[in-house]
Write a protein that binds this DNA or RNA. Structure first.
Length: 263
DNA sequence: ATGGTCGGAAGCCGA
């Protein structure tokens, strides 16, 4: 089973990219974030033509929005609200084999890394804390869960282009890294990408649109993640971060991340 | 040290 996560930054502008991603990575499950479209305007015919007969779309006009596509049917499909608001940031499905897939778009958190001065940053920390609490409550040793998405945190020093220069930049501050570690501990999650790509190696999934030349300056961050619970760890086979996608025509600022499992 | 660019909405806000 191949599962891909991609923050598309508007699905309607990324249809060609989706076609190319599916041709190159052949995912069985495709999880998108920031689709930026309401459910009624979602291009489901296009997605069906890509081979995904089953869709869970949790859209929102203009902002956020997540979706899960699958070649096989879902046993259950749900969405959930967080932090007492109706942002579309979480959708999850159960597959026939009992594997549960959670697709998240964690709040970016604004510019100022101080929850007292910046409500967006406070919201991000609350969101991660609520996630940790929820997964801790659902924790069971035999759970076969996959958590994917744009978590908007780059936890390791090698997940950013300069650890030192990003210590006070939202996405890599110690308080966010601690919040993500707390979430990771909530279900003893395994970072499926770092399972294959050693932590000594620099690895990014996002490059700002603002760089003159993203590839040469290479000031990236690893914000997009795929995690699995311990029961699925022996099933992990490979992981890829599709860096070339950042150079495609009309690119998203994020690139797809894919993990293969043999459950 | 600052500003740089996208996307979607409407003539700015969030990333």
């Amino acid at each position: 089973m191949r599962i891909t996560t991609w923050n598309v930054n508007s699905i309607r502008l990324r249809l060609e990219g989706l076609k190319r991603l599916v041709a190159e990575q052949a995912p069985d499950i495709l999880c998108l974030q920031e689709i930026k479209v309401s459910n009624e305007h979602f291009p489901e015919d296009f997605i069906a033509e890509l081979g995904f007969a089953h869709c869970l779309v949790h859209g929102q006009k203009s902002y956020h929005g997540v979706a899960i596509f699958s070649r096989t049917a879902f046993e259950r499909a749900e969405t959930r609200d967080w932090c007492d608001n109706t942002d579309s940031r979480h959708a999850y499905v159960r597959l026939a084999d009992g594997i549960e897939i959670h697709n998240f778009y964690v709040p970016a958190g604004g510019d100022i890394p101080d929850p007292e001065k910046n409500e967006k940053f406070a919201h991000k920390l609350r969101f991660l804390a609520e996630m940790a609490e929820w997964f801790a409550r659902r924790q069971r040793q035999d759970n076969r869960f996959i958590l994917v998405g744009d978590l908007n945190v780059a936890p390791l020093e090698t997940d950013v282009w300069s650890h030192k220069q990003l210590l006070k930049v939202v996405s890599h501050t110690p308080v966010e890294v601690a919040a993500l570690a707390h979430l990771s501990a909530s279900h003893r999650w395994c970072d499926a990408v770092r399972h294959f790509i050693p932590p000594e190696q620099r690895l990014y999934s996002w490059w700002s649109y603002r760089a003159r030349d993203w590839e040469t300056s290479d000031r990236g961050r690893r914000l997009d993640h795929i995690w699995v619970t311990p029961a699925l760890r022996p099933a992990l086979r490979s992981a890829t971060v599709q860096r070339p996608a950042r150079g495609w025509p009309k690119p998203s600022d994020h690139v797809p991340v894919t993990v293969t499992l043999e459950p």
